[in-house]
C-alpha cells in the first residue's frame, strides 16, 4: 500500500522542484528559436520568406507524433500495470498533443496555400495527421465521457494504444504514396538534406517545444492530482466519521484519500 502512493508523492515533490526550471528553459529556447527562425536564418532560394513557416510547422508535427507515442505508452502502462501515475500522465498529455497537432495542421495549411496553391488536399500525409487529431479528440472525449472515471480511462487507454498504428502510416506516408507533401529532410537515413542555417532554428524550436511539453505536462499532472484530492475531500465532508486518525501532514488518513495516492 505504501509503495503504491509513494510514487505520486515523490512525483509531487520532484515536479515542484523541476517546474520553474522547465518553464524558464522552454521560454528561453522558444525566444532563441523565434530569433533564429524570423531574423537570423536566410530565405529559401525557392520558397523565399515563406519557408519560415517551417520552423513552427515541422517542430509541432514532431511534437504531435511524439506526444501521441507518450500518451499511448502511458496508456499501455496504465492498462497492464495499473500504475496510478501513468493514467494521470496520459490524461494530462493528450490535450497538449492535440494543440500541437492543431498548430501543425493550420500552419501546414497556411504554408500550402502559397506553395502548392491549395489550403488542403486529401492526400495520405495530410489525412493521416487529421486522423491523429481526431484520435486525440476521441481519447479526450472517452476519458472525460464516463460517470465512472476508471471506465473512461480504460476505454481511452485502449483507443490510444490501438491508434498507434496511425503513427508509422504518418511517418512513411510520404514514401508509400504520391503526395504533395515533401519527404523528410531531417529525420532520414544518411545526412539531413538541409542547410545548417535552417537546421539550427528547427532544432532549437523543437527542443523548446519539447521542454514546453514537459512543463505543461507537469502542471497538468499536478492539477489532476489536486482534483483527485478535491474529490476525496468533498467525499470526506459528505460522509463524516467520528474522530479520524491524523497523519503527520494533518490530513485525515481515510481509505479514499489513501487510495487516491496523494
Amino acid at each position: 500500500m505504501l509503495s503504491r502512493f509513494a510514487n505520486p508523492a515523490r512525483f509531487v515533490r520532484v515536479s515542484a522542484a523541476l517546474l520553474p526550471w522547465c518553464a524558464g528553459v522552454s521560454i528561453a529556447l522558444i525566444l532563441l528559436g523565434l530569433y533564429l527562425a524570423l531574423i537570423a536564418s536566410p530565405p529559401d532560394y525557392q520558397q523565399g520568406e515563406a519557408v519560415r513557416i517551417m520552423y513552427v510547422h515541422v517542430p509541432s508535427a514532431w511534437m504531435a507524433l511524439n506526444v501521441y507515442l507518450f500518451v499511448a505508452a502511458a496508456s499501455a502502462v496504465a492498462l497492464v500495470w495499473r500504475h496510478p501515475l501513468a493514467e494521470v500522465a496520459a490524461r494530462a498529455a493528450a490535450p497538449i498533443g492535440a494543440c500541437f497537432t492543431f498548430v501543425c495542421l493550420t500552419t501546414g495549411s497556411l504554408w500550402g496555400r502559397p506553395m502548392w496553391g491549395t489550403w488542403w488536399v486529401w492526400d495520405a500525409r495530410l489525412t493521416s495527421v487529421l486522423v491523429l487529431f481526431f484520435l486525440y479528440l476521441g481519447y479526450i472525449a472517452l476519458v472525460n465521457g464516463f460517470d465512472d472515471p476508471a471506465r473512461g480511462s480504460r476505454a481511452g487507454s485502449l483507443l490510444a494504444v490501438v491508434g498507434v498504428v496511425n503513427l508509422p502510416i504518418i511517418k512513411f506516408s510520404v514514401d508509400w504514396w504520391n503526395t504533395l507533401h515533401q519527404p523528410a529532410s531531417v529525420l532520414r537515413l544518411g545526412k539531413p538534406t538541409i542547410a545548417l542555417s535552417m537546421l539550427a532554428p528547427l532544432l532549437v524550436m523543437a527542443s523548446g517545444f519539447t521542454v514546453l511539453f514537459v512543463t505543461l505536462l507537469l502542471i497538468r499532472m499536478r492539477t489532476d492530482l489536486k482534483q483527485r484530492r478535491i474529490r476525496a475531500l468533498q467525499l470526506d465532508r459528505l460522509t463524516p466519521a467520528p474522530a479520524p486518525p491524523h497523519t503527520e501532514s494533518g490530513l485525515p488518513a481515510r481509505p479514499v484519500a489513501a487510495r487516491e495516492g496523494i
Binding site: 523565434l34 524570423l38 520568406e49 515563406a50 519560415r52 513557416i53 513552427v56 510547422h57 509541432s60 498548430v103 493550420t106 500552419t107 497556411l110 504554408w111 496555400r113 502559397p114
Partner: peptide, 9 residues
C-alpha cells in the same frame, strides 16, 4: 501567411 502561422502557434 507567415505572420498568421506564428500568431496562431
Amino acid at each position: 501567411f507567415v505572420w498568421p502561422a506564428y500568431g496562431l502557434a
